Simulated scan of single mutants.
Amino acid sequence: MTGTVSLERIGEMRCGVGECPIWHASEAALYWTDIVERTLWRWDASTDRTHAWTLPEMAGSFALVAEGGLALAMETGIYLMQHPEPGAPIVSEECLAMVSHASEGMRFNDGRCDRQGRFLAGTMVCDNALARAHGRLYRLDAGRRKLQTLCDGLIVPNGLAFSPDGRTMYMSDSHPSRRIIWSFDYDVDDGVPHGQRVFVEMPEQAGLGRPDGAAVDADGCYWICGNDGGVVHRFTPAGELARSIAVPVAKPAMCAFGGARLDTLFVTSIRLDGDPLSGATFALDVGVKGLPEPMLRLPDEVSEAGRRQGGGRKM
């Protein structure tokens, strides 16, 4: 069932926890974050060059902003930052929303925009060994500078993705005690998930790995990294395993479609001692096309305030 495909490594970096790859179509560039190293990475497909920026906090995920810049979900909240230029520092324009965590030692983890351009992101306790179900899934309400709680009781929220029509939301909990993917009916008008049900279970004995970061292709199939399994899986909308692709690292973390034709699957990974490829980012030719990544759309008053502010704290 597990096969291989053409695969290339991007750059020479090895991320501690490589997450949230996002293809920026107009730049022909891939962005991703190294959570534990507090770093934002960019790879330029036309020049094959990489750039890195240091962040003030760990960023579990981020969204490209339609009006320009990035919205990073970090430890203390979601921050709007100017679009970074290679060689220049990132500047924080403003805090879009502060987060009130359920307990100490928490941060944002996986997140992405729905098809309508609303940003959703989950939180987790940094120390996985504690297995505390204090995590929540939030939706950013930038106009009111608030976070709306959509789900709670999560340990390690992951695998956020949306069907092509936006009416199904997927989310996983990748903690070893959970290893489950859910699907939800998603209200495209209000941005609220409901009707939670089990989509796929990935128990340890199945050898599929733990469900981590995910993406949806143009056919509506759900791709998810099998962390600890060294594979990336493709599930049909009915939850049937259609394909498994081996990658040369034990801990693939998140995947995303990109490239000029959206037919390249980019996969980030987690660094392990003794594994020289772990932590690398890969480009896979999987023979399937993805969907353009939606951008966060900010209310006019928020984007205008960011432009007026101009300065901000240096990163």
Rank of each mutant, 00 (worst) to 15 (best):
L272S: 13
D273I: 13
D273V: 15
D273L: 10
D273N: 09
D275G: 06
D275N: 11
P276N: 00
P276A: 02
L277W: 04
G279C: 05
G279P: 01
G279F: 02
A280L: 05
T281L: 10
T281P: 10
T281R: 06
F282C: 02
F282H: 03
A283T: 07
L284T: 01
L284F: 10
L284C: 05
L284I: 04
V286T: 04
G287L: 12
G287N: 14
G287Y: 12
K289D: 10
K289F: 01
K289I: 09
G290Y: 03
G290W: 01
L291T: 06
L291E: 01
L291I: 15
P292H: 06
E293V: 15
P294E: 00
P294F: 03
M295V: 15
L296S: 08
L296I: 08
L296W: 05
R297N: 10
L298K: 01
L298H: 02
L298F: 05
P299F: 11
P299Y: 04
P299V: 08
D300H: 04
D300L: 07
D300N: 10
D300C: 12
E301G: 03
E301S: 03
E301A: 06
E301F: 08
E301W: 04
E301M: 05
V302P: 02
V302F: 01
S303Q: 11
S303L: 09
S303N: 09
E304D: 15
E304V: 11
A305M: 08
R307H: 08
R308Q: 07
R308Y: 06
R308G: 05
Q309T: 10
Q309F: 14
Q309D: 08
G310N: 07
G311S: 13
G311Q: 13
G311E: 07
G311M: 09
G312K: 02
G312D: 02
G312L: 06
